[in-house]
Each structure stands twice: as C-alpha cells, then as structure tokens.
Design a protein around this nucleic acid. Sequence first.
RNA 1: GAAGGUGUAGCUCAGCCGGUAGAGCAGCGGCCUUUUAAGCCGUGGGUCGUGGGUUCGAUUCCCGCCACCUUCACCA
Length: 502
Amino acid sequence: MQEEHIEDLNDIMKVRRQKLAKLQEMQVNAFAYAFERDHTAQQVIDDFEALQEKPVAIAGRIMSLRSMGKAAFGHIMDASSRIQIYVRQDQVGDAAFEVFNLVDIGDIVGIKGTVHKTRAGEITIFAQQFVLLTKNLRPLPVVKERIEDGQKVTYDAFADTELRYRQRYVDLIVNKNVRDTFVMRSKVVTAMRRYLDGKGYLEVETPVLQPIYGGAAARPFTTHHNALDMTLYLRIADELYLKRLIVGGFEGVYEISKDFRNEGIDRSHNPEFTMMELYVAYEDYSFMMNLVEEMINTICQDVLGSSKVMYQGGELDFTPPWPRLRLFDAIQKYAGVDLYGKSRDELRSAAKSLHIEIESFWDSGKILDEIVKEKVEPHLIQPTFLCDYPVELSPLAKRHRDDPKLVERFESFVAGREISNAFSELNDPIDQRGRFEQQMAMKEAGDDEAQMLDEDFLKALEYGMPPTAGLGMGIDRLVMLLTDSPSIRDVILFPTMRPEML
RNA sequence: GAAGGUGUAGCUCAGCCGGUAGAGCAGCGGCCUUUUAAGCCGUGGGUCGUGGGUUCGAUUCCCGCCACCUUCACCA
C-alpha cells in the first residue's frame, strides 16, 4: 500500500485511525519517545513479597482488557512475562482515563502503580499513572486461555502456519512457545560457543561469496559481482576456507554461519541454514566423535538441565558414549545384506532387490548412500555415529588407516536425521587432486552436485596441512531436537517463503 | 518437480447436493470500580484465494492459476 486510502481499510483499522486522530486532538503523543521503567513483569511476580504495596513502573503490550466503566482490568506483556494491571479513573485521573478509554488490545503502554494481589489471588499492578506509548493500528489475534479440569485450554489460537511464518512478529507477540523456542535457540548457540571457546578454539569468519564453491555436494546459488564482472557463488559450506586456516597455522578454528543450498524446501531443509564447522589440528575422527557427544551433551545440560529430551513423543538420551556403528555393519543389520567390497553392478542389483530407485549415472558410492538413506537412517533414533564410509562418497576425507576402500568419516544421527558430518581431513594434495578429478568426471556424467576442483585449495595443501579432524553440524536441526520442533521452519525466525501475491 | 489436502469476517471455524453467508472471540454503542474466555443489552462488518467456464443465477459444480500444508523427489 504505497498511498494510504482509509476507505480501503477494514472497519477495525478505520476505528483505530479515528482513535489516533482523537488522541492527537487531545495533544497526546500516540508514539512516545521513551518510558522509564524500573521492573519487568517477571521481576514483579518473582519479588512479589518484597514489592507488595510498593510502587513500580513497567511497560508492555496490552494483551487483554476487561472494562467495567470507571475501572478496567487487563494484562500487559513485556519480554519477560505477562502481568495483570488494574486501572481506575479515580486513581489515574480523568484525563489519563480518557486516554485509557481509547486504548485497544495491542497498544503499548507504561504503567506506574503499586503491587497488590486481587481478591482472586492474582498479582496485579494498581495503576496510579497510565501513559500510552505506542498506538496499535492493526488488530491483533486475541488468544484466550482458560483452565478446564486442570487443563489449560486455548481458544482462538493464532495457528495458520502461513500467516505465522509470513508475519513472525505477530506469531512472537501472540504465541509464547514460539518466543521460548527462539530464546532456546540463542541459548544453544551460546552454549556451543562457550564449549568451543573453552577448548581454546578460535571463532573466525570466512567468505560467503566464493568464486569456487566447495566442501559439500549441493547445488549453489549463483550471483554476479558487477565491478569484477564475475560469477560468485553463495557458499554451500565453509570447509575449504577453514582448512586453509589450519594450513596457515591456527590449530583450532570454528565458524557458525549461514550456508546456502539451492535445493528443495521441506520440514528439515531451508535454502539458507546455519552450520557450525570446526577443524582441529593433530586430531582425527575418533577425537571428533568424542567431542561431538561431549559437546551435545554439555549443551543439553546447559540449556535443559538434563541429558534427556522429549522429541515428538519419544525420549532422546544424549548421555555419552553414543553407539558407533560402521556403515557396512549398519547395512548388514538393517537391510540384511553385506555390501562391503561389492562392485557397482552388484550394488545396483542389491538396490533393485531392496526396491530402491537409482539413477543410471550413479557410481557405487552414491548407490550405497541411497541404500543407507532408505534402510538405515530411519532406524537411528537415539544418538548414533555411523562411521567408515566408502571413499567415493567423501572426496575430502582421508582414507581409512586400515582399509583403502573406506574413509575415516562419521555422521551422527538423531531421530533419523543427520545432525553432523565429520572426518579425518584429507591432507595429501596428490590424493586430493585425484578425488577432485573423479568428482569432475561425475559432473561430466550428469551429477550436478559433484564438487568443483579448487586449485588454490590444492595449492594450500601442498604447503602442508597438519593431520586435522573436521566437523560440520546443522544448528537448525540440533535446535529442532532440543525444542521439540517438527519443522525446521519452527526454528528459523524468517523461513524462506514464496512472496505473497498482491 | 509430482501427488493429495487446505484457502469463507481482524483471529478460530461452521455452512452451501447451485438461489450472493453464520457462530465465538475481537470491534462499535450502552450499563457496570476486584475482573480474568468478565458479564448483561444492543449493533456494524465479508468482491466466500484468484481468473475463466457451465447456468436464468456460482461461495457451492467444472477448468486454469496463486499460496500454504502433508507425502515423495533433490538435499543437510
């Protein structure tokens, strides 16, 4: 709405504008500059005994109103909590009460008054002064709750997922559990930083715009730099830059940042998502397994006070150690076939007998990957490490010390979803070049997710990268687990949406 | 990208085997100075997602389109 035509607004919005005009006539600033408060709602509730009868100043958004002529009850909400207010004409004065009569649910107000408990036993601020701080011009969904048979019943919840995602600000105002989820998300990231910083690792920032994308198998977003007249890609992983830093002499570096993958959107995928990558010199993937289970458990303890969490009706237990299952043993266990050392054709027929569809250009690694996805991953509910992957699947991982067909790689699974991926990093530049070349061949063959050859990265390896363990961890998915969220969109404040058609 | 589902008032929903729509809350007016889904009385509000088609007549039936949800594909 570029130009505003009041006749286009609905009745409720028209009335709000009229009230605004009335306030202006009364010389009331409906968009105040500041309000000096000395308590939050939660502080008043927590310190009720000490604050009883004492004056407090609080501010917040009106969430309910029950007017009784010359007095009214309502609830105001600030970031901490919700608290009842009681406004009486004979206390706040005629002028302020006249303003109060123009207040709607959704307005932001400041209250100075004394702390009491009502007859019904609810902590309430009896207003002595009332100030309008911000006039609301758009009706807010009014969610009501009632206790029935000890159960909290919610009426008229703001529940339309599309509206909730498109207008997350409304979702946050109205749905407390949504606020809680994002507070929890912040705590998870803070706890992770605290853990990694405590180990002495250095948090760094590497390029989002990359001339050559790498470090994962995915299609990128492509963009263009005008001044340089060149194509740039939004990163799909941080890996190759972080390893350059290990070459440079840092011995532990991590980055928490957005990665971008030009793939489909579903309950566990968003085109931009948050990843933590960590590289530690002189260590291998066994070290990293220990670190992952310790780190996740520490985060759980920090933010939930427990190693156990309920997720979608089932209990997850993050207490270390987590089971470690070799990939081919897992296939044996869940698919009932031994696929170790099998040729591409043998894998192909195995896939067929397991009713798994495969593409003609897939190599043996890709076919195996598909079988694992279908037959193994759904079984990995409790935290589990799947380790020792075939070399074809992992062009950046070091060959297994006991078996050249495998690499020293693991992925951790929880609730059937991958939450981390790690390996002993390949630091032999000759081997690395060969693996890149194999990827290029796959790209030729039609695999548009095969990785690009990065000459500068190879050059860095030629200078010598110490033995290094590397890890990537999906933050969004971790937060989903710890907040019992079924969709990644529930843990991303503004998930990717198609633009609304106007 | 495919299939299925959904789209009706600010919010949550009902309804219509074709005759231009209802409820609760929110709103507006009135009464009410301890209420809390406040209450009581009265009352306004909708191009029924969008564009076509069939029909005397479409919110309802048919087709296209858009958005969202679910499952699948791709992927983490």
